[in-house]
């Protein structure tokens, strides 16, 4: 492996550069995936059958908490990558751990939210609207859950191996993924919750 020291560590080998480019392309595919979900959700937003509508079931408090948690975690993962660039291992680990904790909190509140929907009679099978709502939120939530475990393993590897082209590359790609989920959440927050509550 040729290591190019003029580049940041995460870009320092050819393979690393390809990994990052490949991941950007993967995010392009993810955008299509979420775009399809959103487009379908908008078509279904008023197709509530005999079930509740969005304004019947949406509650602002848990959604605001989720938004706060995820937005903050997007900030802390940025700090983690910044610390990594500065070569500060402990700071990186701390910020990464905070990010994951915030992520876990987000998942916890989302589960709480889903239970609430179930209790107010908005299950997966209730109507096309509720089905699509839970599918869209669920896809995002599954992404965050996957990201939580992914980040956890990266954290363990940094702790064990320190910074090298491999761990730096993984952390950087993970941060792209995490930011992406945050951006998707902003769309969900604005166009599903806020629009639905109005």
């Amino acid at each position: 492996m040729k290591i190019d020291n003029t580049q940041p560590l995460e870009y320092s080998t050819d393979q690393n550069q390809m990994n990052i480019l490949g991941f950007w392309i993967f995010l392009g595919a993810e955008i299509m995936l979420f775009a399809t979900l959103f487009a379908t959700y908008f078509i279904y937003a008023d197709r509530t059958g005999s079930g509740p509508t969005g304004s019947d079931i949406f509650e602002i408090t848990p959604v605001l908490i989720e938004t706060f948690l995820l937005l903050t975690s997007s900030f802390t993962i940025g700090l983690a990558i910044n610390a990594m660039r500065l070569g500060r291992k402990n700071a990186t680990l701390t910020f990464l751990a905070i990010t994951l904790l915030l992520g876990a909190g987000f998942i916890g509140f989302e589960i709480f939210e889903f239970v609430h929907y179930y209790h107010v009679g908005a299950g997966l099978q209730t109507s096309a609207f509720t089905g699509m709502l839970l599918t869209t939120l669920g896809t995002h939530g599954a992404h965050v859950t996957f990201g939580f475990f992914w980040g956890l393993f990266i954290l363990i590897q940094i702790k064990r191996d320190g910074f090298n082209p491999r761990t730096a590359n993984k952390s950087f790609i993970f941060s792209l993924y995490w930011h992406f989920l945050d951006v998707m959440w902003i769309f969900i927050f604005s166009f599903i919750y806020l629009k639905g509550m109005m």
Partner: peptide, 21 residues
């Protein structure tokens, strides 16, 4: 995924009832 949900989890995303399309 939507097809699987409809067939295996009883959602009505592509049905003609309950608002499906």
């Amino acid at each position: 995924i939507m097809g699987t949900l409809d067939r295996q989890f009883g959602t009505s995303l592509f049905t003609s009832t309950s608002g499906g399309m």
